[in-house]
Amino acid sequence: MKAITFAEFGDADVLELTDVPDPEVRPHDLLVRNRAAGLNRADLTHRRGGYGRANFGDSDLMGLEIAGEVIAMGSETQGFAIGDRVMGIVGGGGYAELARIDYRMAMHIPDGLDDVHAGALPEVFVTAWEALGHLGRLTSGESVLIHAAAGGVGSAAVQLAHALGARVLATADGSKREAILGFGADVAIDYKTEDFEAVVDSVTEGRGVDVIVDFVGAPYLARNIRSLNSGGRLVQVGILGGIEGAELPLDRLLYRHLQIMGTVMKSRPPAVKHAMTRRFADTWLPRFASHSLAPVIDSTFPLKNAADAHRRMESNQNIGKIMLTMA
């Protein structure tokens, strides 16, 4: 099969389309003919050598989410059949014509959802709901601040929080303000020209928000803590801004009874990943069948042009998901 590989770590130019062996089907696997695969920032880290030659359980190829058609099945799989259209999160291997996926990580693609949108759904929406619902315990009528709201997980989190009935504040580049509001945000904050802490303080009349979902890390930590309401929950999903120099206002943490939680998917044990997938699917998958929720697609690239897709992500110009497609 054709797949994207790289002989050495480096910039996007190291990516190339090569021939590699087809995946071997394990007892719990579905073998999927990929139609689309989503890009994630973890792929950039992988390409640059941040994980070494890592195998996250399924393959040492890049790619963490896929959509396509089941063409073979292991002896221990349940609930799926040859020819089913499926989507899901894989432990590597998405940047290829074929991929194996643990059937417990797979979801049936809702009728009417095309392959590109299906491939854009699993990683971002499962992660977003884990942060908002399972860890953040966000409920209708509460308020939430979502950082990096124009990205894949951020745009998914805005949609889910809005659908849940929460008041949504969201940060993004000012040029993406209208898009953020279109996803369902009530307040869009330009992180380049506005201090989100001051905006939160003004909008909430000093109370703060109930939940914050953050991808930035150290530069935002102190302001995030000061932006939380009593009993508030900060869910840390990424550290795009690094980990050095973080300041934690311990008095605020203590006297407002705040909670700080972290979440990451790719390095979690399989049973945890299975539970995360099921929590999302049981709660939200019917909403995609009715098209009341939909992944946000920024752009698509043929598999052979994966390097261009990586450059698009590195430019930080994208709104929503960048996708690879297979013939």
Rank of each mutant, 00 (worst) to 15 (best):
V14R: 15
A150W: 01
L303G: 01
S267A: 14
A150C: 02
G152S: 08
G141Y: 15
V32K: 01
A185Y: 14
G94E: 05
A172D: 09
I109F: 11
T325R: 05
G242P: 10
V124E: 15
P269Y: 03
L258A: 12
I66V: 04
D210V: 00
G93M: 10
H274I: 11
G88T: 12
D190A: 09
S143Q: 08
A188W: 01
G241N: 14
P27D: 05
L31V: 03
F196M: 01
P286G: 13
S267L: 11
E197F: 06
L64Q: 14
D11V: 12
G245P: 14
I319W: 05
R223H: 06
V211K: 00
H46I: 06
P270C: 09
A37N: 06
R41P: 12
L39F: 04
H108K: 15
R256C: 02
V86M: 09
G88L: 07
L293I: 11
N55S: 09
Y51W: 13
A271E: 04
L240F: 04
L303T: 12
F288M: 13
E244H: 05
M1N: 10
Y255I: 10
S155F: 11
N224G: 08
L61V: 06
A163Y: 00
H134P: 15
R233G: 04
E65T: 14
